[in-house]
Amino acid sequence: MLKSPLIAAAVALLMTVPLAAQAGPECAAGKTISPGKLTIATGNPAYFPWVIDDNPESGEGFEAAVAYATAEAMGFSADQVDWVRAGFDESIQPGAKNFDFNLQQFSITEDREKVVDFSLPYYSSAMAVLVQQPTADAGAVPTIDSLRTLKWGAAAATTAVPMIDVITGSSNSALLYNDGADVVEAMKANQIDAALFDLPTALYVAAVVLDDGVILGQFPADRTENPDNFGMLMQEGNPLKECVDQAIQEITANGVLAGIEAKWLSETTGVPVIQ
């Protein structure tokens, strides 16, 4: 179609310029750990609703979908995305990583930023108080005074721990567990009254895992103290960070991210807010 190679070159240039200004393949070229591929890590196992059926390759689930959308904005097609599994400890160890970025509800904190890099946030999570029906029947209500009287539990490696200290006004006031599954087990054994989770996880546990789980209330995502922003974790000084950030800006601006959130995390509205 094109008349001369010169015009073809000019058209090609015109087409690439806006791409380069965004997060095109040029940005990420040569910066990933395996050339031409984007290696993304998630938890082992990865939980609902972040990844459906522990199968991130399907793109089903909030974080799986965000990962593919980000990859696309960075210029990687779906089959150029490789998944690996890496826990938090592997992600913060000094030395080379086996992933380009890792997303599994890692909250961005100042202290963590000293050791690893985080992308721009892709989700701001509310924190929710999960109880069992008998506790709610016994008069637990979503006010600080009422919450203070409960026996608390949480997963140890989460930012819920300092938040419980804030709620109860004392340190070391909660029983802590390895992961959410153990927290639920302790709740079933009636060893704890209430647990603090990010809202989507709390909704899942209340609806699916516990027979009589109730969300008592939520601390909104835009609270001033301890806001919980999820970021993609990268090795400190990873040159890929700017490409990932551009990609997240792009999918935020064009509404893709909001669409994914609406699809996978739509139930999070309608939970009473704790003042």
Binding site: D111, V115, V161, N172, L176, Y177
Partner: peptide
């Protein structure tokens, strides 16, 4: 299974401070 003894507390610090 819940008690926050030294090992668990160290784990909490590890996770908060990376």
């Amino acid at each position: 299974i819940g008690p926050v003894e030294i090992f668990r507390q160290a784990g909490v610090f590890k996770s908060l401070l990376a």
